[in-house]
């Protein structure tokens, strides 16, 4: 079941997805502080593991509903740095043609739903998408992402319950990253762990270390294979930490330093790299080469995209409706 020998579950690919995500977001953060990003800048720095692992656990025909911290889902489903910079820099060629900004994008041809800001709202959408694909005979499963804050919404409840009633194979991944904007988890839920909610829906709940990508891949691959064969939703609550403010405008003063440091010591990229170096699946040379090539690719994409044209205001009203 837990087959890491399949090419799409290659641990070095897992590491690479996280590294590309991190490099893109670090570059975006820099662009923001240089005043080159229109609007805010939101990142998932420190939370690359769950999305990357979910991408490797899934198949090309699966559906994903990432949220604000899940750059690694976009990267893992094939969105390159050009695609992502175009979106953030609001170029005419952006995936939303400049109609939406920053993290609000997706690529349905790659099975990735574009999020809206209303937390929880995408969970029933990915559930319905999976239902439709399976009805067409495609053995699709879904991955729906939410945070500790989003788990407080009615939509979270409606979607998980809905998927449970219809046995829709969706992995609902709650990334407990300790803060919803500035609000700590003590004001979001009373249960000991968000996985404890699963029995209330009649589904399995799992806890996982959100900063251990290899262990997450093991778990998510096992769950994905299992629910594909025996359709039903599952809940996975991962323990992680948002390593920056809600957005770059937020000084994050409310986060205890020692808490941040404890998670900084378990950075998901470093944890994964060290494990792979330790058992020889990655060499120092490969690591350095990977780092350098990603850096070059990301820098070049950022430069090229910055020179691309902005949307034409004359297109303002295009596409409000699909042509009948």
């Amino acid at each position: 079941m837990n087959d890491r020998t399949r090419p799409n579950r290659d641990p070095v690919t897992l590491l690479r997805i996280m590294m590309i995500s991190r490099a893109i977001e670090e570059r975006l953060i820099r662009l923001y502080h240089q005043g080159k990003v229109y609007g805010g800048a939101y990142s998932g720095v420190g939370q690359e593991a769950p999305g990357a692992a979910a991408c490797l656990a899934g198949e090309p025909h699966d559906l994903y509903a990432p949220l604000i911290r899940n750059m690694s889902v976009h990267v893992g489903r094939g969105a390159g740095p050009h695609h992502l910079f175009r979106q953030w820099l609001a170029r005419a060629s952006s995936p939303t043609r400049g109609r939406d900004g920053n993290i609000h994008h997706g690529d349905l041809s790659a099975g990735v739903y574009p999020m809206i800001s209303h937390l929880g709202a995408m969970l029933p959408v990915v559930t319905g998408g999976v239902m439709a694909r399976r009805r067409r005979g495609i053995p699709c499963i879904g991955f729906g992402f939410i945070g500790d804050g989003g788990s407080s919404t009615g939509d979270f409840h409606e979607a998980v319950n809905f998927a449970a009633v219809f046995d829709v194979p969706v992995v609902f991944i709650i990334e407990d990253n300790k803060f919803a904007y500035s609000t700590p988890t003590s004001r979001q839920f009373r249960c000991a762990n968000l996985a404890d909610r699963a029995p209330g829906y009649g589904i399995e709940g799992h806890r996982a270390d959100g900063n251990d990508a290899l262990a997450l891949l093991d778990l998510l691959a096992r769950l994905a294979d299992d629910i594909r064969a025996r359709p039903r939703p599952v809940l996975v609550a991962v323990d992680t930490m948002r390593m920056r403010g809600h957005g770059e405008h937020d000084d994050f003063a409310y986060a205890p330093r020692e808490l941040l440091e404890s998670y900084r010591a378990r950075d998901p990229i470093a944890v994964c790299r060290d494990a792979l170096l330790a058992d020889g699946r990655l060499t120092d040379e490969q690591w350095h080469a990977l780092e350098a090539s990603i850096r070059t690719e990301v820098d070049q994409a950022a430069r090229e995209v910055a020179a691309e044209p902005a949307p034409d205001p004359r297109t303002l009203l295009e596409g409000v409706y699909a042509p009948s």
């Binding site: 995408m122 029933p124 998408g129 809905f162």
Partner: peptide, 23 residues
């Protein structure tokens, strides 16, 4: 029939509509 969950109903319908169905 669905649970009494209008947001899940409409959200699921949006998901279905993007995947070839006309809900």
């Amino acid at each position: 029939d669905t649970p009494i969950a209008e947001s899940a109903m409409l959200g699921a319908a949006i998901g279905m509509a993007t995947q070839g169905l006309k809900p």
